[in-house]
C-alpha cells in the first residue's frame, strides 16, 4: 500500500492546485458564474455518489437534503440574522440530521422500494415548504439571502473571487475526504454490503449502522452544498426540491460514472457546460438534454470515467507490454448492484 502514498499525495496536491488556479483562468463574469454553478453541482453529485454509487442504495433523497440545507442557510441568515459561518455550520448539521432521519424508513426496505420512499421524501419536503409559508416563504421562496462573508470579507467582491476559491477548495477537499472514506474499513464495508450483503453480514458488518453513517455523512455534505448554492444564488425556493434537480443530479452521476470518486465531478462539469450551450435552444433544451441522458445511459454504460480509465489502462498496457493489451482493459470492472 505504501507505494501508492506518493501518487495519492500528488493527486491531492493537484486537486488543490486546480482550485487555486481556477479564478485566474476564468476571469469574465459569465464564465465565473458558469464555473461556480459547475462546482456546486460537482459537490452535489460527488457527495450523492457516496450512497448511490458506492453504497448501492437507490437514494433519491439526496436532492431533498440539499434543498433542506439550502433552506436552513436562508432561514439562519434571514430569519435568525446569523453570520455566514454559523449559518453554514447549521446547514451542515441540519443536513446530517435529515440524512439520518431519511435512513430510518429505509432500514426495513430493499432495492426499489428505497427509490420510492426516498423520492417521496423529496416530495414531502416540497409540499412542507409550501405548507409552511411563515417559515419558508411558501411558493415565493426566501429571496435576498446575504452574500457569504468570511472574516469581514464578502465572497462576492472582486467578481466572486471568494466564491470561486471556496467552492474550488470545497470540491478538492470533498474528493480527498471521499477518497479517505472509501479507503477506510468503513468504506470497504459499504462496498461489501452493496456487492454481497449476506457475505458482508456474515463477516460481522452491521448493515444498518454502516448505511446510517453513510446517510448522515452524505446528508451533511448535501447540507453544505445546499447552503453554498443558496449563499451563491442568494435565494432559496421550491425549485430546490423539484423533479428537475433530481434528474439533473442523477444524469451528472451517471454521465460521469459511479465507479470513480471523481466521476460525478466530471459529469457535473460536462452537464453544466452542455446546459449552458443549450439555453439558446429555449424549449428544445430539456428535450435535447433528456434525450442525451438516455443515450448516454444506453450507449455508454459506466459513463465518462469508465471510458477514461479503460483508455488509460489500454495506453499503459501499450507502453509496458509493447502492444499487448492488458487484461484489465478487457474486463472493465462491473459490479452487481443487487445480488
Amino acid at each position: 500500500m505504501t507505494k501508492y502514498v506518493p501518487s495519492r499525495l500528488i493527486r491531492w496536491a493537484g486537486y488543490l492546485a486546480i482550485a487555486v488556479v481556477i479564478p485566474y483562468v476564468f476571469v469574465a463574469p459569465s464564465s465565473r458564474l458558469l464555473v461556480c454553478t459547475a462546482l456546486i453541482y460537482a459537490l452535489l453529485a460527488a457527495s450523492w455518489n457516496l450512497t448511490l454509487g458506492f453504497g448501492g442504495i437507490f437514494n433519491f433523497a439526496h436532492a431533498g437534503m440539499f434543498g433542506i440545507g439550502g433552506y436552513a442557510m436562508a432561514i439562519a441568515t434571514l430569519k435568525l440574522q446569523w453570520a455566514s459561518i454559523p449559518s453554514l455550520a447549521f446547514a451542515v448539521l441540519v443536513g446530517a440530521v435529515v440524512g439520518g432521519l431519511t435512513y430510518l424508513p429505509v432500514i426495513r426496505m430493499r432495492g426499489i422500494y428505497i427509490a420510492l420512499i426516498t423520492f417521496v421524501f423529496v416530495q414531502i419536503s416540497y409540499h412542507l415548504v409550501l405548507a409552511l409559508p411563515d417559515l419558508t416563504g411558501g411558493s415565493g421562496g426566501l429571496p435576498g439571502v446575504p452574500a457569504m462573508t468570511i472574516a469581514g470579507q464578502s465572497l462576492a467582491q472582486y467578481g466572486g473571487l471568494g466564491y470561486l476559491w471556496m467552492l474550488g477548495a470545497a470540491v478538492a477537499v470533498l474528493l480527498i475526504v471521499l477518497e479517505l472514506i472509501m479507503a477506510s474499513p468503513f468504506g470497504h464495508s459499504l462496498v461489501a454490503l452493496r456487492d454481497n450483503e449476506q457475505l458482508a453480514r456474515s463477516r460481522g458488518v452491521n448493515r444498518v449502522r454502516q448505511q446510517f453513517i453513510a446517510f448522515v455523512i452524505s446528508g451533511a455534505m448535501a447540507g453544505f452544498t445546499g447552503a453554498m448554492y443558496v449563499a451563491y444564488f442568494r435565494v432559496a425556493d421550491v425549485s430546490l426540491f423539484g423533479f428537475g434537480l433530481v434528474t439533473l443530479g442523477l444524469s451528472m452521476i451517471f454521465l460521469g460514472g459511479t465507479k470513480q470518486i471523481w466521476g460525478p465531478v466530471v459529469g457535473a462539469v460536462v452537464i453544466t457546460l452542455v446546459n449552458d450551450r443549450l439555453t439558446g435552444l429555449d424549449a428544445w433544451s430539456p428535450v435535447v438534454f433528456a434525450a442525451g441522458t438516455i443515450a448516454v445511459l444506453i450507449f455508454a454504460p459506466g459513463g465518462i470515467s469508465a471510458a477514461l480509465t479503460r483508455g488509460v489502462a489500454v495506453l499503459r498496457g501499450r507502453l509496458t507490454n509493447s502492444g499487448r493489451p492488458s487484461t484489465s482493459s478487457q474486463t472493465p470492472q462491473r459490479s452487481v448492484e443487487h445480488a
Binding site: 434528474t247 451517471f254 424549449a283 430539456p286 441522458t293
Partner: peptide
C-alpha cells in the same frame, strides 16, 4: 433514471 429523464423529455 432513464424513465425519469424521459419524463423531462416528454414535458419539453
Amino acid at each position: 433514471v432513464a424513465t425519469l429523464a424521459l419524463a423531462g423529455l416528454a414535458e419539453g
